[in-house]
């Protein structure tokens, strides 16, 4: 079970909340301060992408963010309910470009990242190392 799990309606105004919660839980789990900015950005990108997928497909639903503290890694999973991945390049231009930019940011920032498919839509899984001994345990 996730340490903290968050579900929000796929709307842009909730992405900031997800970023803040993820960073707070990661800090508590012992993720190094120096990567918290990157983690916050990566979660934001994953959530923005999920929201955009919902908007594009016109499917109502929720974005799920699961934050899981393990012994050595801190895992973040962002899943959408926008249905199966659609073939890119349909429109040419706008949203797909932003999608590509978002993924470029995630893959540029996060060493361990996997973009896949879940039961109801896409899933982005990311992880970061946690400090071996938490200073304020």
């Amino acid at each position: 079970m996730a340490t903290v799990e968050l579900r929000f309606s796929a709307l842009p105004e909730h992405v900031r909340t997800a970023r803040l919660v993820a960073a707070a839980v990661a800090r508590r789990a012992g993720v190094d301060e120096s990567v918290l900015d990157e983690l916050r950005l990566a979660v934001g990108e994953a959530c923005s992408r999920a929201v955009a997928l919902h908007q594009r497909s016109g499917v109502d639903g929720a974005v799920r963010v699961a934050l899981t503290e393990q012994e050595k890694r801190f895992l973040i999973e962002v899943a959408d309910e926008a249905g199966p991945a659609q073939a890119a390049g349909a429109g040419g231009g706008g949203p797909e470009d932003e999608d590509a930019l978002g993924l470029a940011v995630i893959t540029g920032l996060v060493e361990d990242v996997e973009v896949g498919n879940g039961a109801d839509g896409g899933v982005i899984r990311m992880s970061w190392p946690v400090a071996p001994a938490s200073a304020d345990a």
Binding site: R19, R40, G44, E45, S48, E98, L101, G102, A104, V105
Partner: peptide
Amino acid sequence: DFLDSTGLG
């Protein structure tokens, strides 16, 4: 304080 890919776009 914060910029993401939407901002870049």
